[in-house]
Design a protein around this nucleic acid. Structure first.
Length: 175
DNA sequence: ACCCCGATCGTA
DNA sequence: ACGATCGGGGTT
């Protein structure tokens, strides 16, 4: 497995969101294939946390690519994102679907479920996933067919087709 | 200090 | 369709 380097995350957010499908997320002892992503990016995305500018929470989205952005939503669930593009351009990719294949086989369909099972909390906010040994994304040479749609759970920015979902049917996913 | 509300999810 | 649950961020 080849760990993705920072230049991967520095690409256009939609390209990163698409390319993350089929990659393997590694967190401690867990490994899983990313199956669903959403992009939140730029200054004209009303659904992005960074839409109204820099705050203590969103500062990470304005930072260097290749860092984690983890936040608490609805008082009970954490959501995992990876910061993309260049410094001062606010952008991140939300990880919404994960097919765990180690140490268990389990499809996690939803950002809250992923963080709950992996044990990702605000402790994992702001981690440099390029230089971490137990939290990173790797290329396993897998490419997946995918569908595009508008993002889930938001009331604005529904015109943007920034959600990417892998087609899991007829795909050799875990050997 | 106060209030609104959310990149969700399980239950009904 | 709805409630749980709480921190972020804007407003007073």
């Amino acid at each position: 497995m080849k760990k993705l380097d920072r230049s991967f995350y520095e690409q256009d957010s939609l390209e990163v969101a698409r390319s993350l499908l089929g990659k393997t997320l590694v967190f401690n002892n867990y490994k899983g294939i990313i199956t669903e992503t959403e992009a939140y990016m730029g200054f004209e995305d009303p659904a992005s946390h960074a839409f109204r500018g820099r705050t203590k929470r969103t500062e990470i989205m304005f930072g260097e690519a290749g860092f984690s952005y983890v936040y608490l939503i609805y008082g009970m669930y954490y959501c995992l994102n990876f910061v993309t593009e260049k410094k001062d351009f606010p952008s991140a990719i939300l990880i919404r679907g994960l097919l765990i294949y180690e140490p268990v086989k389990l499809l996690l369909d939803g950002p809250g479920k992923i963080c709950k099972l992996l044990g990702i909390t605000k402790e994992q906010n702001g981690v440099d996933i390029i230089n971490s040994e137990n939290f990173y994304v790797a290329d396993t040479g897998q490419t997946l067919e995918y569908s595009v749609s508008s993002r889930i759970g938001i009331k604005t920015g529904l015109d943007k087709m920034w959600r990417f979902v892998a087609n899991l049917k007829n795909t050799p996913l875990t050997n």
